[in-house]
């Protein structure tokens, strides 16, 4: 039995059903949200067999199934031309799908477009603004466009939250690139959406602004807003996302909780700094996945952190027996970027 929708503005902590489901594999998974660990969440976007082939014949999206949960931060990763923007554009109504369906908060984005779009805010990739309008006017315009009555208090709050209040009477053309990006976010938030799409939100912005945006996104999530972001910055997804989808050549090749993904696919490595350089790895150690650095002073052992035994204890004993001493050691895990690159290469 489906869970009843929770009231708006409340982070949905539902004790039953509605698990994060990756239909492609027909496997029910638990949410990866640290704050919601142990509980299930309700889907807010349900995509079924969605595909897009442009008039030129180019297939931008192969049939995709995906569910995005209420209140999560979902990162969609993929190289240029992978289909990220096409997918977002279809959900938001900018591009017509070739087949399939999308439900946004239970409303079909084509048949019930009004109800669906009222819930959605979009910050597109390009800095497209009304250059000659003031910040206040353009944000107020967006609110009205989405069917909301004027609410100066809300517009003021959005502008203050985004550090735009002192620029409210400035024409957009006079603002810096980073400020323009904030204006676009303010426009997307002006109608109090429950779902926010951020298409490459930090492309071309400085480090400080990126950090500010991360804080803002987390704050939005805390109010129950579902955030879907596409990004080229893997560290951004690693830092912010609860779940990650990887799309390549129009195909959704993986959807997984970030932590689970990194645990499952992330390699761990033990690096030993040796006391004396080795010419080669001793014969007795040949059965271990070891690599010796060019200067012979580093020995790198790759292991599976999820395995029953990492083998580190045995390795260290064998090294001691072989008379190989080390002065330091460290362990490291492969980054999301390593995982992403390897996934995309695998499918290339």
């Amino acid at each position: 039995m489906p869970a009843a929708p929770a009231p708006e503005g409340v982070a949905e902590v539902l004790v039953v059903v509605g698990a994060a489901t990756y239909h492609r594999r027909s496997v029910r998974k638990r949410t990866a949200f640290p704050m919601l660990e142990g509980v299930r969440v309700q889907p807010i976007i349900s995509i079924r067999q969605l595909s897009k082939t442009y008039a030129s014949g180019f297939q931008a999206l192969k049939p995709i199934d995906l569910t995005i949960n209420r209140g999560e931060i979902f990162a969609l990763l993929g190289p240029n031309g992978a289909g990220k923007t096409t997918l977002i554009s279809i959900i938001c109504g900018i591009v017509n799908p070739s087949s399939g369906s999308v439900l946004a908060d239970g409303h079909d984005v084509v048949r019930e477009y009004r109800a669906a779009r009222e819930k959605i805010g979009l910050v597109p990739q390009e800095l497209t603004t009304d250059a000659f309008e003031t910040v206040w006017n353009t944000v107020s315009f967006s609110r009205g466009l989405f069917g909301k009555s004027a609410n100066p208090a809300h517009v003021e709050k959005v502008l203050r939250d985004l550090a735009l209040w002192n620029k409210k009477d400035n024409k957009i053309i006079t603002l810096s690139g980073g400020m323009k990006r904030r204006v676009m976010i303010a426009k997307a938030l002006s109608h109090e959406p429950r779902i926010l799409f951020l298409d490459e939100p930090t492309a071309g912005v400085d480090v400080d602004l990126r950090r500010d945006m991360w804080v803002m996104v987390r704050a939005l999530r805390a109010t129950g807003v579902t955030v879907i972001l596409t990004t080229h910055y893997i560290d951004e997804a690693e830092e912010m996302a609860d779940r990650i989808g990887v799309i390549n050549k129009g195909e959704l090749i993986l959807v997984e909780g970030k932590t689970a993904l990194m645990e499952k696919l992330g390699r761990r490595q033990l690096t030993l700094q040796l006391q004396a350089p080795l010419v080669r790895i001793p014969e007795a150690m040949s059965g271990y996945p070891l690599e010796l650095s060019a200067d012979g002073l580093q020995l790198v052992y790759t292991y599976d952190a999820q395995g029953e035994s990492t083998g580190i204890d045995v390795l260290l004993r064998r090294l001691a027996e072989a008379g190989i001493d080390f002065k330091d050691l460290k362990t490291s895990q492969s980054s999301l970027e390593d995982i992403f690159v390897s996934l995309v290469r695998e499918r290339a």
Partner: peptide, 8 residues
């Protein structure tokens, strides 16, 4: 994009 994605 804003006009096309709005509930209008």
């Amino acid at each position: 994009y804003e006009i096309l994605s709005a509930p209008v």
